[in-house]
Amino acid sequence: MNQVQTTVASEYSSEINKIPIEHRFNPYSDNGGTVLGIAGKDFAVLAGDTRQSEGYSIQSRYEKKIHNVGDNILMTANGFAADGVELIDQFKQQLKWYKFDNQNQKLKIGSAARYIQHLLYNKRFFPFYVHTLIAGLDDDGKGAIYSYDPVGSYEREQCRAGGAAASLIMPFLDNQVNFKNQMIPGTNENKTIEFLELDEVIKLVRDAFTSAGERHIYVGDGLEILIVTKEGVRTEYYPLKRD
């Protein structure tokens, strides 16, 4: 195997050695946490736990992760916390400029979604290490969730879980929101998709997070749910296990 040879300085400044460089600095870390978005008929929710961790340490039991960025848009970027904060800050800043440049026009959720793709894709060679979700209402007033991978590939979905416990929650959501693998009893047909009501969605979200909290060390402490309707944004908080 060929090792990369690079020139570095030795203690004697005139002497040059060819030795492999060890790059110890890793600009990323994983701050855990998990997030989840579900779109309803005339609402959308974005939920996340409030724990922030680093390794086996809990840094904070309450650090805000779901942000109301304005214009009835909710946003979260879960994964490496510093990148998450930066992405959301950049978007908030650009939203301000958008409104300033366009007679205070409201930013549509579809435009916000595309714009965030650009923010992520422009940094694809040094990506924001986050799973991004936004939630809002579309032009018809229907709930909308958009989800992204770290380099900006995105898609509108009915529901999506992201972050540490995504793999635990997503199958549950497939089953409970999109009725995957649910048959109509006595027939051979799949159950048809129908919109859930808000109270049902809240129940699902709480169940998803209490279950994830049981099984995943990076999930716990608190659950914050932000709900967007045509009336605006409201927040609910439920404690989770702190172990």
């Binding site: 600009p27 990323y28 870390s29 701050n31 922030q52 680093e54 340490s57 840094q59 904070s60 039991r61 309450y62 650090e63 490496f80 916390a81 510093a82 904060v85 930066e86």
Partner: peptide, 17 residues
């Protein structure tokens, strides 16, 4: 890394343990 957080008690390094 630029990671930030708030809490009522904070310690760095060994202090966090």
């Amino acid at each position: 890394l630029g990671v930030t957080y708030h809490a009522s008690t904070i310690a760095t390094g060994f202090g966090s343990h």
